[in-house]
Nucleic acid binder design. Structure first.
Lengths: 187, 187
DNA sequence: TTTGTAATTAGACGAATGTCAAAACAGATT
DNA sequence: AATCTGTTTTGACATTCGTCTAATTACAAA
């Protein structure tokens, strides 16, 4: 996809702005166009170095060159600079929010604490417990009522300590109970 | 002065934004706060690397950390990102416009073509000729009238080819002539 | 065409940056 | 107090970046 390219492009823009000499050049060009030799003299840099910097700025679309008599004159492209940092940082939702984000963390946690479909250990961090319990709670059909021994039976598939699991599920508000009848909480 | 620090700070901000992993982190934090381990899992990076990136973002003032249970949770500082690129690039006038800009180029040109107060050669680039001639024209008192032989005498101090200099000065509109009388043009 | 001048490229080299493994740290849980 | 776990630091290594000199290129001026 072009998301990668897009990402690299954005990074390149900021990278182009991330050097003192180049910031100074842009400020000088803010007043009027400049040619390489002039910038080199003002900044006390070698013309080759200036050329190198200008290439980066041009590649990022921040300046545009034009020929003029002997000189290659560079001028500022103001339109790009009018955007906010946020606009430049922000990437399309789809690039990130397709659930991939949390899935990576979920997957890691699940892989750590589940072996062959069974819960090997209950993590001590609440965020991880949450993930574990959500996975277990998915085994219960929404809307259906369960007897306590049905609940125990299901939980027993995950770990022999079904009582702790049941308690956790209620504590985390994933399971509800009334008069010995259980049901899973709607999301 | 703090101009230097200011300049380095600005560059550091952009440098912090100039890396794909850090851009992704900011985008992830745009939805909600994140802790290091989570980011490491999502980005498939070593926790140490993530910590390093987060430190750069924090130093640039783009994110702020807070402790939360086991975790160090980082959240986005939106205010900074609201500014435009131009606002971040732009430096106070005084830092640049005190005439230092052009002076550097002038100095270089003058050093190249003047030796011991005498003009060793007339440059072929108009921008440089302009600088040379302005320097020579400064020898004439504003308002005062000069005979042609007085003009020649002054120019002879710079170069034996006084006739060419005189012609150039008029061509560049630095000296004016009427009926054999010369005067320097007001700025 | 020849010459001169600014711009760019190539090459080299030191400095800064990104990455990870391992160790040290900090702080909550037990 | 002892332990466990996420975070940060340290050290090492490869990569990228900034800078210069020297060589090359592109063109305007003569």
């Amino acid at each position: 996809m072009n998301h990668e390219k897009n990402l690299a492009q954005r990074a390149a823009l900021f990278k182009a702005l991330g050097h003192p000499a180049r910031l100074l050049m842009l400020n000088l060009m803010r007043e009027h166009s400049r040619h390489g030799e002039e910038l080199a003299a003002i900044l006390s840099l070698n013309p080759a170095t200036v050329s190198h910097h200008l290439a980066k700025l041009a590649e990022a679309g921040l300046v545009t060159p034009r020929k003029e008599q002997y000189y290659q004159v560079y001028s500022l492209r103001g339109d790009l600079l009018k955007k906010t940092l946020m606009e430049m940082v922000q990437m399309p939702q789809e690039t990130l929010s397709t659930g991939v984000e949390q899935d990576a963390f979920r997957a890691k946690v699940l892989h750590t604490f589940f072996k062959h479909g069974r819960l090997t250990q209950i993590p001590s961090q609440r965020k991880k417990v949450q993930i574990i319990l959500e996975t277990i709670a998915a085994e219960f059909e929404p809307g259906r009522k369960y007897e306590e021994r049905e609940v125990n039976h299901i939980l027993l598939d995950f770990n022999e300590d079904f009582a702790s699991l049941r308690r956790y599920l209620i504590e985390f508000n994933l399971l509800a109970r009334d008069k010995g009848i259980y049901w899973c909480v709607e999301k």
